[in-house]
Simulated scan of single mutants.
Amino acid sequence: MITYPVFTNGSTIGVPAPSSGVGEERHNILNQAIKRMQTKGFNVVSGETAWTQNKAKSAPAMKRAKEFNSMIKNDEIEVIIPPWGGELLIDILEYVEFDKMQNKWILGYSDLSVLLLAITLSKGLATAHGTNLVDLRGEYSDETTAMWASVLATNRGETIVQKSSPLYQKEWSHNNPSSCVFNLTEKTYWKTINNQPICIEGRLLGGCIDVIRHLIGTPYGDVKRFRDKYIPNEPVVWYLENCELNTTDLRRSLVQMKLAGWFEGCSGILFGRSHGNYKTDF
């Protein structure tokens, strides 16, 4: 059975940087995000790693893991929201104290999905694929982004409905943000393989395929054990974001996931928008 953390509005947010931190040139946007959360009634505990960045990571692996472990064990912190993703979160997995993991929400996306998926598969603890902290610095949040608090505050046995965003942002523009941070200009649309409406259901697993594929064959990527122990006889819906993989690399990764048994019991796969190279001969 999946364990769902408890979250209440006005609780304490922990801000470590288990992947990338925020370099000095962008400290202003992290400060804005923290102040915005404080004006909404949240207490914010910021880690040292959130403010540093060197060689594609916020700090050495041991320091990042130690800070994350400390926040996980801190009874006063109810939710952990790193500033953003990055590149080298996988460095810290061997140092994360999974056996001491408390039931608290961890929210993020991109490289953070390595940690989110590893925790869910290893502990049966629900994690949240959603907004990073710097995305919450605006005067207000668009309807989709603003759902993070409502979703995390949903109690076990309750239901919450999420809808697709009407518009999305085409590209990042940190130096020209809108009042809600994102410059929402492009219309959201859905496509299916046969261009027909479909209905699928199951437990959501996934993240950024560029990075979660590296969990395959490791102790942190045992999907079969997770399914047998925590969701026996339940289908899985995979959601996959492609950041930088070209078409052939994406295909290789999907085949690897299939050969590793990750798609057993799968009822469907959701793909997010991709900037990858889709020019190919097949």
Rank of each mutant, 00 (worst) to 15 (best):
H174P: 12
N242Y: 05
W172Y: 12
T188V: 13
L204E: 06
I269N: 06
N176P: 09
R225E: 11
E201I: 03
N155T: 13
I81T: 08
E171W: 02
Y140E: 08
P60Q: 01
L259A: 11
Y4K: 14
M257K: 01
Q256P: 00
N176S: 15
A59I: 02
F182V: 03
G206V: 04
A260S: 13
T12S: 08
Y109V: 13
F7P: 08
I90C: 01
E264N: 14
I119G: 00
S141P: 05
D135I: 02
W148H: 10
S19Y: 00
G108W: 03
F98R: 03
T127E: 13
I77G: 09
V79G: 02
W84D: 08
T145N: 11
L167G: 03
L254S: 04
T248D: 14
V134D: 04
N103E: 15
T154F: 04
S58K: 01
D91K: 06
G207K: 05
V161D: 12
V236H: 10
T49F: 04
E234R: 10
K229R: 10
N54A: 11
C208G: 13
I13D: 09
E158G: 14
I269A: 07
T144N: 07
F182C: 06
G21Y: 01
V223T: 12
D99N: 15
A33E: 08
I90V: 11
R36T: 14
S150W: 02
D91F: 07
S70F: 03
P18G: 01
N31M: 11
R251W: 07
